[in-house]
Computed example of a mutant assay.
Amino acid sequence: MRSAPYRIGFLLWPGLTQLDLTGPAQVLARMPGAELHFAWKTLEPVPSDCGLALVPTVTLAACPRLDLLCVPGGAPVAPVMRDAEVLDWLRRQSGGADLVTSVCTGSLILAAAGLLRGRRAGCHWAAGHQLALFGATFVAERVVEDGNLITAGGVTSGIDLAFRVIERGHGRDVAEAVQLALEYDPAPIAGGTPQTARPGILAEVRAMMADRLRAREAEIAAIARAGARSGHAQAASASA
């Protein structure tokens, strides 16, 4: 029987989608033995995409070793994908974690840290194709498991990821008990994925996102190229 707390850490970063973080955090807070940490470079409030500021509980430097690492996503993801301090922290924490997880474009951050090469991963449907730039395979599912890697699709999928984590660690009964306590029984209108959306709605959403996605895709492609050059240089140095 585990007596120590199960340390769950979320990476906060400026501009993240708050539900990517708060959705799974609300669920995982109910998991037996859970101890949640919200980490960033400082303890100053971190702005999210909807104006809600999130307050870190620990700095990256002071964060304890995590049992579960979770990286939320968001639209302005490129700057954090280039942040050497954040990427180094992710590599260190992932090395000792039982589970490495992400929500939405958080998988692109893990990919930029070199943690998804050769792995299957989820992502938001509009960005998942860019995982291939980092040697990962995009899987268009709400929750994707690959060994100790569990990644979710877009935004609300993070809630499903959290229930998968509870079921994996504590069994179906505990997961269902938490689900009932939170009254999580979604019955949305149809059309929440590109496959189920009406063609006109899908075209409208793609058009709304087009300019932003083009700019971001160019940035992410540049990050992938820079990472590849760095990897080749390190390999050449090691073989010299």
Results as ranks from 00 to 15, higher is better:
residue 8 I to T: 05
residue 9 G to I: 13
residue 10 F to I: 03
residue 19 L to Q: 12
residue 19 L to E: 13
residue 20 D to Y: 12
residue 22 T to L: 14
residue 22 T to W: 07
residue 22 T to I: 13
residue 22 T to S: 03
residue 24 P to D: 00
residue 24 P to V: 01
residue 24 P to S: 00
residue 25 A to Y: 06
residue 26 Q to G: 11
residue 29 A to R: 14
residue 29 A to Y: 10
residue 30 R to K: 05
residue 30 R to G: 12
residue 32 P to S: 13
residue 32 P to G: 11
residue 32 P to Y: 04
residue 33 G to W: 00
residue 34 A to N: 12
residue 34 A to L: 13
residue 37 H to N: 10
residue 40 W to F: 14
residue 42 T to W: 11
residue 50 C to T: 15
residue 55 V to T: 15
residue 56 P to H: 10
residue 57 T to I: 12
residue 58 V to I: 13
residue 59 T to V: 11
residue 64 P to V: 14
residue 66 L to D: 13
residue 69 L to G: 03
residue 69 L to T: 10
residue 72 P to N: 08
residue 73 G to W: 04
residue 74 G to V: 13
residue 75 A to S: 14
residue 75 A to N: 12
residue 77 V to C: 06
residue 80 V to H: 04
residue 84 A to L: 12
residue 85 E to N: 09
residue 85 E to W: 03
residue 87 L to E: 11
residue 88 D to W: 08
residue 89 W to S: 02
residue 98 D to T: 10
residue 100 V to P: 08
residue 101 T to F: 03
residue 102 S to I: 05
residue 103 V to G: 05
residue 103 V to K: 04
residue 103 V to C: 04
residue 106 G to L: 13
residue 106 G to R: 05
residue 106 G to V: 10
residue 108 L to K: 01
residue 109 I to Q: 04
residue 110 L to Q: 05
residue 113 A to T: 07
residue 115 L to N: 01
residue 115 L to S: 04
residue 117 R to G: 10
residue 119 R to G: 02
residue 119 R to I: 05
residue 119 R to M: 06
residue 120 R to Y: 00
residue 120 R to E: 07
residue 121 A to N: 01
residue 125 W to G: 00
residue 128 G to M: 07
residue 130 Q to L: 15
residue 132 A to F: 02
residue 136 A to K: 13
residue 137 T to N: 05
residue 138 F to V: 01
